[in-house]
Design a protein around this nucleic acid. Structure first.
Lengths: 344, 344
DNA sequence: TTGAAAGCGCTAACAG
DNA sequence: CTGTTAGCGCTTTCAA
């Protein structure tokens, strides 16, 4: 039966030293002789003692935890797997240092999100937070600054702003490669189905898309703005295919939409990639499961998560070097893209 | 600029009362006059004060947080979206009570998992944990009991054991309905592709599957054990289709495998549902994205998450009633199933 | 190199 | 009804 949890005093007593000595040992402070250190260590492990997180937090005003709040979209579709990957990366960096990850999932109401951040900060539950899904007009930075919480953003800030952020090197590379790939296969009418326009990356990617086309003297066949849902994608594909001179290729802002779009096309009797090439974005596992397998722009989501954690950790003085190598986006060619159809 | 975080003493001073009074007010204890309570409340909100989680935890030995550790499968395929849904449900119950969710993601090595649980417990970071993916020979209960942490399992314990657990009412209903559906459509050779055999639910579902078939004097056409990966599913489908008298329908233990299996079949030139009907399990968003849309056994994952949280909360004395209504599994018929093909 | 002692912000007796 | 006070388990001066 688990008896009372041992405290630092128990360890000190067993080792025959003061609690101060024990504290110094576990925190690697100087001023402890080797024999003493050994006695303390043995005593600690004999008692299976670990410092109480609460006591440490109270005393040192450091919780050794970082927070994250995710908005749960109504259909659970979009952000999800994406999010999981990011979290894996973050945890990969936090765990070895004994840091915890406090996660909050909130509804769509904007206030819910703010409440969650406030709670994290006011209750002093975390030392920092990581933000994702950079939004145009994002107010989270200001909020968190007021709350005095360290913050790092995964993605591009919506404006020049002193928010620490991480992103892949050569962020434009992937979408550009996708366009090159399509053009090389003879596509001339290429459409883009973007996500909600309040997302910063949406705007960026669209811009890259257009620039890449322009480099070949092409203009986007159509650009349609969609939400991140399956229904939205189906809708978008419906519209695109109904056009008189319909596109021969479509880029989607994420994999879920791409898969949904691809399915919608096939349901309308349009062959993929025979009559329509489809490209996704992110390279979620999903893309390999479906038939045809999805050609997509791979993002190093795990790397981004690691990098974000690292930045936070560095600013907390836990690690020296904040840098993590985030692989640049790259095009993964699978089965959903092919030569442009002959008929004009 | 955020000045020093206010403490209970600041609130007490501003309200002109003692800290004890403030404490009683925020904790809803009796023995406070209405006017005093009001003064405290105003002062608290004026100062934007919230009790420090660390201090409360230290003092009351309650962290107001619950923990969860997830094993990250190498391909990230299986557990993921499933997991996210569970977490959404859990958070839905925790948030309103101001409880946090501490998440750890660990690698496959068994020891990593144990380390994570130990850390949660020894550092006293959480008041309880929720376990998922009940395994045969699961040792986590014993571990957590020794660690003296409250535990609840989502799923069925692998043996009669005093582990609090939650599961849907009529857990067998879904798979049974799937079999009925297939049989009603003339299928006689029905195969099952299960997950790893060390999962308790794998065994249960298989049993239900066989019993349901037996009720129609049928035996499973083939049962193949797979891991939870896409490759595994592709492999399984390959084997099944190579059989002399191949099955006309296949049930998969989860949606990812089902989708992968469906794709593999189509790649082999086998029409779904024309020549082969496919049924998944869980009803993840994925199933609606693909073409043909997946017929699947829906599980109320969010409800299960809520229920688990609720059990924990009840045992912590936070709520009276532990019950949450978890919808029974039900068959969602979409496009991947149809009448059995004519040829025998 | 070591230990004694003073809190960190809060809750829970216990007195008034 | 309200205030005083003693810690919860730890870290950190400051002396010895």
């Amino acid at each position: 039966m688990a008896s009372r949890k041992p405290t630092i005093a128990d360890v000190a007593a067993l080792a025959g030293v003061s609690v101060a000595a024990v504290s110094k040992v576990v925190n690697g402070k100087a001023g402890i002789s080797a024999p003493t250190r050994d006695r303390v260590l043995t005593a600690a492990s004999k008692l299976r003692w670990t410092p109480s997180a609460a006591a440490v937090a109270l005393r040192s005003a450091k919780t050794r935890a970082i927070g994250m709040v995710a908005r749960r979209s109504p259909d659970l579709l979009s952000a999800d797997p994406h999010f999981t990957l990011l979290i894996s990366g973050i945890e990969g960096e936090l765990s070895p240092l004994g840091y915890g990850l406090l996660l909050h999932i909130v509804g769509e109401e904007p206030s819910a999100e703010e409440v969650a951040y406030r709670r994290l900060a006011d209750e002093r539950r975390v030392d920092g937070v990581v933000l994702t899904e950079s939004r145009v007009g994002d107010t989270r930075f200001e909020l968190l600054r007021t709350l005095d919480v360290r913050t790092v953003l995964i993605g591009t800030p919506w404006r020049a702003d002193p928010v620490p952020s991480v992103q892949a090197t050569g962020p434009a590379r992937g979408v550009r490669a996708a366009v090159e790939h399509l053009v090389a296969h003879g596509h001339r009418r290429i459409a883009y189905v973007s996500g909600p326009e309040d997302r910063v990356h949406t705007l960026h990617r669209r811009r890259v898309f257009e620039d890449a086309l322009a480099a070949h003297d092409l203009a986007p066949s159509h650009s349609v703005v969609s939400d991140f849902t399956a229904a939205g994608a189906v809708d978008a594909i419906g519209k695109l295919l109904a056009e008189h001179r319909r596109p021969t290729a479509v880029l989607f802002a994420n994999d879920s939409m791409a898969v949904a779009g691809m399915s919608a096309a096939r349901r309308l009797g349009v062959d993929v990639p025979g009559e329509l090439s489809v490209v996704g974005h992110d390279d979620l596992p999903l893309g390999e499961l479906v038939y045809p397998q999805l050609t997509t722009v791979r993002q190093d989501l795990i790397g981004l998560g690691r990098a974000a954690a690292r930045v936070l950790l560095a600013s907390l003085g836990e690690v020296e070097d904040a840098s993590v190598d985030v692989r640049p986006p790259e095009l993964v060619v699978r089965e959903s893209t092919g030569p442009a159809p002959d008929r004009t």
